[in-house]
């Protein structure tokens, strides 16, 4: 089942690369919105600036409340991830567009980046002592805990990838099925449900990234 009319076919993009095309569309949307908000910065915000300030300010308060003051340093990355995934997810609800997160490769790229970044943050803030995070509570258990911790750390990008991919892809398939069964009557109510679910998935990705970074920055238990 394919979309009947879709933007990437109009641009002549091959089917297997269309998630890259829609990722670029999401980036262009974010760039345009950010430049529009930057052009008219006011002391008393109104309209677009107010909307962005509510989202970004709320997320910053939330991050600082969870991680502490150290969270302000990594907050730009977290907020970027949230907004990027949110726009990518919501592209799936736009007519003529498709969600790039419904392809497993986009999510795998983002999850691998998060994996590398939190290990880098852990290495930067602890140095060689970062290995203590993998060693468990007591020295006698190290031969057992080291492979267990390695497996559970390697499982993090996999679970990040599969959660986002499964949710967004499932919603796309459900929308297509509903549309082929009863156009408008069944798709309009499910749009509201999926709007909530897609925002929630973007928030979950942000939240788990924050928890992993927090675990890399705080003391090993």
């Amino acid at each position: 089942m394919e979309h009947p009319v879709i933007l990437s076919t109009l641009f002549g993009i091959p089917e297997e690369y269309k998630h890259v095309f829609y990722t670029w569309i999401a980036m262009v949307i974010l760039f345009i919105v950010a430049l529009m908000a930057r052009r008219r910065l006011e002391l008393v915000p109104g309209g677009l600036q107010n909307f962005l300030e509510v989202i970004i300010g709320g997320l910053e308060d939330f991050t600082v409340a969870t991680i502490g003051e150290k969270g302000r340093k990594i907050f730009p990355l977290l907020c970027g991830i949230f907004l990027f995934i949110l726009v990518q997810n919501l592209l799936g609800l736009m007519p003529f567009c498709d969600a790039p997160t419904a392809n497993v490769n986009t999510n795998a790229a983002m999850a691998l980046f998060v994996f590398i970044y939190y290990n880098y943050v852990g290495l930067r803030s602890w140095g060689p002592r970062y290995i203590k995070h993998f060693m468990g509570p007591m020295p006698a258990l190290v031969p057992l805990m080291l492979p267990i911790e390695l497996v559970s750390h390697c499982a993090r990008p996999l679970s990040l990838t599969l959660r986002l991919f499964g949710n967004i892809r499932g919603e796309e398939i459900v929308l297509l099925l509903f549309f082929s069964m009863a156009p408008l009557v069944s798709t309009l109510p499910s749009y509201f449900l999926f709007l909530l679910a897609k925002c929630l998935q973007a928030f979950i990705f942000y939240m788990l990234t924050m928890i992993y970074l927090q675990g890399a920055m705080e003391h090993a238990h």
Binding site: V151, S152, C154, A155, R156, L158, S159, L162, R163, I204, L208
Partner: peptide, 12 residues
């Protein structure tokens, strides 16, 4: 996120 954490570590 708890459920998928359990499954994915078995896969890995």
């Amino acid at each position: 996120s708890i459920g998928l954490h359990m499954v994915s570590s078995i896969f890995v």
